[in-house]
Design a protein around this nucleic acid. Sequence first.
DNA 1: AATCCAGTGTACCAATCAGTACAATGGATT
DNA 2: AATCCATTGTACTGATTGGTACACTGGATT
Lengths: 184, 184
Amino acid sequence: MARLVYERADVVPMLAEVFRELGYDGASMARIHERTGLGKGSLYHFFPDGKEDMAAAVLADIDTWFDRQVFAPLRLDPPEKAIDAMWRTVTEYFQGGGRVCLVGAFALDGTRDRFAIAVAGYFQRWIDALSDALVRSGRDSRLARDAAEEAVSGIQGALVLSRALDDRETFARAMTRLARRLRD
Amino acid sequence: MARLVYERADVVPMLAEVFRELGYDGASMARIHERTGLGKGSLYHFFPDGKEDMAAAVLADIDTWFDRQVFAPLRLDPPEKAIDAMWRTVTEYFQGGGRVCLVGAFALDGTRDRFAIAVAGYFQRWIDALSDALVRSGRDSRLARDAAEEAVSGIQGALVLSRALDDRETFARAMTRLARRLRD
DNA sequence: AATCCAGTGTACCAATCAGTACAATGGATT
DNA sequence: AATCCATTGTACTGATTGGTACACTGGATT
């Protein structure tokens, strides 16, 4: 009989999807087991501190992904190119509004207090990186920060609204609107 | 010894605050008891179907409140006046970013499926009402709808971001930005 | 072939979960 | 004064919660 053997890195993305769908409190160990196929033995082997450990790992994973795919390019690549790439990458990552931002979802309920530093850091670094790109493209420093904040905030709003209305067109419209706002 | 006697209408706002802070799954009956002071007897007396019943009542309550305080004025009052009032009312209601939108929070996790109609209806009516006011103020119908969507979406994003950064200034800045966008 | 050890499955625990049952309270109605 | 009934407190249930303990598997190392 075949035996599936995972390592920690394989488990984190599955956990991310579970937390995304069910939220932190909604994701019980039983449901995590159901959706990942991993038994308690494996789960506590990889994440000795249980659920909190899992969520922290997921947040760290999301963080490094965005750092590499979005934030670093914004800081290093030609600004116009990096910003264009950001819109594409983000739209794909959130599957056009069909996939929720876990960090944003955590921010809204009591889970925030538990992961306050990770949650704040994620958004702060996003705004910083985007602001940096805008400054490098010749924008005034103060205006750049305001515009970056508007974009990041707008993406989160678009996710909430498109998910609430269960309509990806809403998300698509918001993204083109925000991209245009950022160009002016 | 004094005995506190509530009626259903007194309980709903307390429940709203509990769900707001803890989320739907985070709000256990024990915690609801703690924070409201009501025993299980009272809670199941008012809400025979338990938590789901409570959340539905809270959503309905929020809905009627917004209908009266925000949506109806947008449809009936002089548009510029009504829109100005909307920004004031909303800022006060969300306590400058310190208070979360329960409907938005529900939209992000698995709770949405349970209350999909109420959640979608809330945002749809908000967009419709604001769009109506913009049309009445002379805006083109298509542009009005787009602008209304941007505003409602933007408010939700501002709530997520200001809560994530734990900074009300972020919310305040977003509100003035959105109000200006709506005027152009 | 013997050992090792990362990864697994299962049985188990106390605490908490949502929900039920029902007797007690006490203001209002008659 | 007797009755009524909305509201409340408490004791209880069975299911589920997060978490622990531990024996087992099987590929890799020696």
